[in-house]
């Protein structure tokens, strides 16, 4: 799964959590919390959804990496392919 797929997956999961927002058109570096008015509960739900879907753990300390689409895709790619998978 490449970075583009992962970005699309994040967009899709945001759509499940907050159907009323439009995430697809966001820039890679935009802060989801500011641009889409997502709160800590939304980010919590996003982390849960992505971790279940990809079958990986996403440490709580890394949740901050998922607040932009670009950063999130890079992070997830690294978690999936990196040598030190803890989940």
């Amino acid at each position: 799964m490449n970075r583009t797929d992962l970005r699309a997956m994040i967009v899709e999961e945001i759509g499940n959590i907050a159907p009323e927002v439009e995430a697809a058109t966001l820039g890679d570096g935009e802060d989801l919390r500011k641009a889409l008015d997502l709160d800590s509960m939304d980010i919590f739900n996003l982390v849960v959804a992505l971790s279940l879907r990809l079958g990986i753990d996403i440490p709580d300390a890394d949740a901050g990496q998922l607040v932009t689409l670009g950063g999130g895709a890079v992070y997830l790619e690294r978690r999936l392919t990196g040598p030190a998978l803890s989940g």
């Binding site: 800590s40 440490p59 709580d60 300390a61």
Partner: peptide, 17 residues
Amino acid sequence: LADYNAARLPADRLLMA
């Protein structure tokens, strides 16, 4: 909160609320 969450998978974690 940080200690509690570090030891758990995402779905079992807590928020400050």
